[in-house]
Design a protein around this nucleic acid. Structure first.
Lengths: 221, 221
DNA sequence: AACGTTTGTTTGGTATTTGTAAAAAATTTT
DNA sequence: AAAATTTTTTACAAATACCAAACAAACGTT
């Protein structure tokens, strides 16, 4: 389960992250609405925890923005008082809300409720399977026709990101940002080198990684 | 099992409560000594977790008061330093103590120790067996081909956490958070050292602890 | 077909990561 | 208080991964 925590207070983020990871989930953080929207464009989350009061872009506006392209469940974190009223009066497109101060346990309960409600039929999607290519994210395993593929860290992460964004055209820039990290200031072509190695390791399933000339790559089955 | 948590910091109460309830226990909270004494008059607890420094009525005084009418086991939560000495020198009527900052795991271990000593509660023991490696979590025993392995506390906890998360890729960060506790601010590589020692003690079963380059470790059979 | 542009591939130096041992620090036991 | 144990940090070697540069091949446009 992947959760995006959006709050400007580091302490709150840290505590929530701790709880989520304790239950085996994965937590990503954003300091403000702007960052949240950006992260939502580039990643798939199961649920978003969104603070209301934040610099740059407040929680309400961020949700509105995210709703333009995603229906990921959102739980608002709001202080009691002024924002509290808005939560009732506004059509903000959030799925639930928790008022501060909250207990982490309460938040976890809401997360479970929302993800169950939204996911409905789906079970934990931890393993991707594309024909004879099996990608086990939690266990960090990749199998090609039942045989374990030995990938380097970058190759793993690259493949995971591809799998998570099946069918989406990805520019080299975006891949560098998401897989290498925002602080990578190297050559674009580094992606090509890793794609080459990855293709080699995927054997026949190299076909899934399609080159988009002038753009980048796409993982397609 | 019913536990009363007495501490003025909500964060601490929340974390402990979460852990207790995770293990199927029941947790009640009090913000200060006064409230704790009152709750003890009205309820029966299996164990009390009592902070030392609190407004209204400090931990020592509260225990003294409670001892007038109850012999419920008490575990003191104290900051390192001044109170630490008192814990040794004073006859305070507490059964155990933990110094802050503590790992929730540590506190849970104390709770189990104290309740076992006091009441002889039902014991649920979970035993993992991987080939010739037997891990008795409740009994804190590890057997390598029938022979008991002498592990240090950290090695035990690390192995338990590995066993509980069989097949899951664990980052050093996550291991530090979950095994060492949320307040460990040391070096990542500390994990490596303990893994090395643990591997040595597991003899042939060192093979279960797989290194995931660029990530961390994984326990896999 | 020729040209410029983009991508595939190979390579080697550089940087990063891990295993290990030993020292240092902290903690517990005696 | 000393000794023993445990934990953490440090240092270094070895293994491994990364990245950029260079060249080849493919592509698309004219």
């Amino acid at each position: 389960m992947k959760v995006l925590i959006v709050d400007d207070e580091e302490m709150i983020r840290a505590v929530l992250k701790e709880y989520i990871e304790f239950e085996g989930g994965e937590a990503d953080e954003a300091q403000d609405g702007m960052e949240a929207v950006k992260k939502c464009r580039d990643n798939r989350y199961d649920v978003i925890l969104m603070d209301v009061m934040m610099p740059k872009l407040d929680g309400f506006s961020a949700v509105k923005e995210i709703r333009k392209f995603s229906d990921t469940p959102v739980i608002m974190l709001s202080a009691r008082g002024e924002e509290y009223d808005k939560l009732f009066g506004f059509e903000i497109g959030s799925d639930d809300y928790v008022t501060k101060p909250f207990s982490p346990k309460e938040v976890m309960a809401r997360i479970h409720a929302v993800t169950k409600r939204a996911g409905g039929e789906k079970k934990e999607r931890d393993v991707y399977e594309f024909e004879g290519l099996k990608i086990d994210k939690a266990g960090r395993n990749v199998y090609v026709d039942g045989e374990r593929a030995e990938l380097t860290p970058k190759e793993y992460e690259l493949l995971f990101y591809f799998a998570e964004n099946e069918g989406v055209a990805l520019t080299r820039e975006r891949l560098l940002n998401q897989v290498w990290g925002y602080d990578f200031y190297g050559d674009d072509r580094t992606v090509d080198t890793h794609v080459k190695m990855l293709r080699g390791n995927l054997k026949e399933y190299r076909k899934f990684i399609v080159t988009l000339r002038g753009l980048g790559y796409k993982f397609e089955t």
